[in-house]
């Protein structure tokens, strides 16, 4: 089964174009399940999934939870606050304890880059990276790709600019890998203090001015600007950020073509994106949210058959 994902989903850097396409192709028919009266298929009946969230997250956790439930998996949520995770237990101990309870899959969100891989190397269960530090957020990358593909059909030659705090963004990294592998042209635009010093080596175009990005792009993926970046001295103020880098209606009106607007959320309206852009005719931000559930269902489905324990149990019972 070489075409499938393997044991874990850790990042889009580690997938081939064929694997990415397969996830997207699988996600398309799964969208229909969420439109049914009974939004559920029995595919993952009996599988136990733990959502292990060391960082606060509403949107991603809920999206995973819906995906798991619509596939009939049993889910347990572990959030860092109030659990042993916040009492100094190490990640490796947490992982071993979960494994001892015979779980099948772990969805992990963690503040340290590499945490998902760390876990994946130490437990037999499938591990899905739901965001690790500033490394990758592969399911967000996949849902962005699906949203773009829904509109463009084929991403080859399409121009996508990722705008904002690329330096601290796992969404940006997953998007860069995914878009590049599917043949899109990728650019980034943001203050240089929020771009990695080695940005050129990702083989992307760099725009210093948002006006240039808008002139060039077919789609903008606008990253959330964390308020902490101002305190850390990366930018002087949110006000100035909006004036120089904000995606506003006035700027978009000067674009030579219609530009799709994506945002991974949650949005800072009036900072990186203006409300009339977020709610405007070219915004696909809510499509991203809908696609998020389908993409995560597809990932769960494609990883499930690669669980050696489940497979062995199934054979033993046959």
């Amino acid at each position: 089964m070489s075409g499938l994902l393997g044991k874990d989903l850790l990042g889009l850097e580690y997938l081939t174009a064929e694997q990415i396409t397969q996830v997207l192709d699988t996600a398309v028919p799964l969208k229909e399940i969420s439109e049914r009266a009974i939004k559920k298929v029995p595919t993952l009946r009996g599988a136990t999934v733990v959502n292990l969230f060391f960082e606060a997250s509403t949107r991603t956790r809920i999206s995973f939870e819906f995906a798991e439930k619509r596939m009939s998996a049993d889910t347990v949520n572990v959030a860092s606050a109030g659990s042993s995770v916040s009492k100094g237990e190490t990640l490796v101990d947490t992982a071993r304890n979960l494994e001892a309870m015979r779980i099948d899959m772990v969805v992990i969100r963690h503040g340290s880059s590499g945490a998902a891989r760390f876990l994946a190397e130490r437990i037999e269960s499938n591990v899905i990276n739901a965001g690790d530090g500033t490394h990758e957020h592969p399911t967000q990358g996949l849902l962005d790709l699906l949203t773009l593909r829904d509109r463009f059909g084929d991403l080859r030659g399409k121009r996508v600019c990722i705008c904002g705090d690329v330096l601290h963004s796992r969404v940006a990294r997953s998007n860069i890998w995914g878009l590049t592998k599917l043949g899109a042209e990728v650019a980034v635009c943001g203050p240089r203090s929020l771009l990695p010093n080695a940005m050129e080596e990702f083989n992307v175009t760099i725009f210093d001015r948002i006006e240039q990005a808008i002139e060039w792009a077919d789609a903008l993926n606008i990253l959330r600007l964390q308020l902490e970046r101002m305190q850390a001295g990366h930018i002087p103020s949110l006000r100035e950020y909006n004036r120089v880098f904000g995606v506003t209606r006035e700027r978009l009106e000067r674009a030579p073509r219609d530009i799709l607007i994506l945002h991974p959320g949650p949005m800072n309206r009036g900072v990186e994106i203006d409300s009339d852009v977020a709610d405007g005719p070219h915004s696909v931000i809510l499509d991203q949210v809908t696609n998020g559930v389908a993409v995560r269902m597809a990932v769960l489905y494609l990883l499930a058959g690669h669980n050696p324990k489940l497979a062995a149990a199934a054979k033993g019972g046959a």
């Binding site: 490394h135 080695a198 940005m199």
Partner: peptide
Amino acid sequence: NEGFISARLGLKGIP
């Protein structure tokens, strides 16, 4: 070390 690898791995680099 700060460079392409640190940027890829999402680790803060030391120049």
